[in-house]
């Protein structure tokens, strides 16, 4: 089987400071990988390098493109990379307002990616938008409301709908449940899990919440000071952590 994403020795430096270094892994279709670590561990830097938002200083990120198979997204042309960004890739930001157009209606937000790839039939675009709002549990009568009138959880769900409408194969998520109430988080996690299975999505989820990765991620990568210190099956890493830092991380979680 060809990996969907093949990461080789990615490194990113901020001057002398390490953003992340020596990161390599393969992600296979349908796999969900979690990246955990504390603030400043380099997990967001890594995610941005993988998603093409930051240019890494070294390394390759091969993506299994529909047309040409594995292709290094670091060296591919910018139009090509941006095209991936609105078709096969999706990026869910921690803050919905970074990922949404706050001045545009919910329907317009969802429809944007469709229009970006050439949809020109208003009725069809709107029907698809309504369908996707329904899938993320936003009722049809909110389709013309702006996201600024939505709650935090709804905004996050809208962001997910907006990203998934073009049927991407790889979703990058940066703390998708950060800053949400626990009950809202649970609903979002449930939704994400269902969508991941229905659509056969692969996903890379950056979070510092171990409960989130236990529920969503098949595999886990633990980062500290820009380095990957441990990888493995999610439950194995959490239940039988090998690295001292992971042991500390796991034992530091408050029990409810």
């Amino acid at each position: 089987m060809t990996p969907l994403l093949q990461v080789k020795d990615i490194a990113k430096f901020y001057g002398n400071r390490i953003g992340c270094t020596d990161v390599s892994f393969d992600l296979y279709p349908g796999e969900v990988m979690g990246i955990v670590g504390e603030s400043g561990s380099g997990k967001s830097t890594l995610l941005n390098c993988l998603a093409g938002h930051l240019a890494p200083d070294a390394g390759q990120v091969f993506f299994d493109t529909r047309e040409a198979g594995l292709k290094d997204t670091v060296t591919m042309s910018e139009p090509e990379r941006r095209m991936l960004g609105r078709t096969d890739w999706a990026f869910v930001h921690q803050h919905a307002r970074d990922g949404l157009r706050m001045g545009v209606s919910a329907g317009g937000n969802v429809g944007e990616r469709l229009m970006a790839v050439g949809a020109r039939h208003y009725g069809d675009i709107r029907a698809q938008a309504v369908d996707w709002l329904d899938r993320v549990e936003i009722s049809e009568d909110r389709v013309d409301d702006r996201p600024s009138a939505f709650s935090g959880g709804m905004q996050q769900r809208l962001q997910i709908a907006r990203n998934l409408v073009t049927g991407p194969r790889l979703v990058f998520m940066d703390e998708p449940t950060g800053g949400l109430d626990v009950s809202v988080q649970a609903r979002l996690l449930d939704l994400l899990r269902g969508l991941v299975r229905q659509m056969g999505l692969s996903a890379i989820i950056v979070t510092h919440d171990l409960a989130v990765v236990r529920l969503l991620a098949d595999r886990l990568m633990v980062m500290k000071d820009g380095n990957v210190v441990e990888t493995g099956l999610t439950d194995q890493v959490l239940d039988d952590p090998q690295h001292g830092y992971t042991q500390l991380l796991v034992s530091s979680v408050l029990q409810v």
Binding site: V104, G107, G111, E112, R113, M115, R126, V143, D144
Partner: peptide, 29 residues
Amino acid sequence: LEPRETETRKMHALEEYGLMHVKLYEDIA
């Protein structure tokens, strides 16, 4: 719809004009 000049220039360069239709979509909606 896109306040960043760097971004709009890039959109012109790469012919990424989906956003223009978002504006028209909003009108109809």
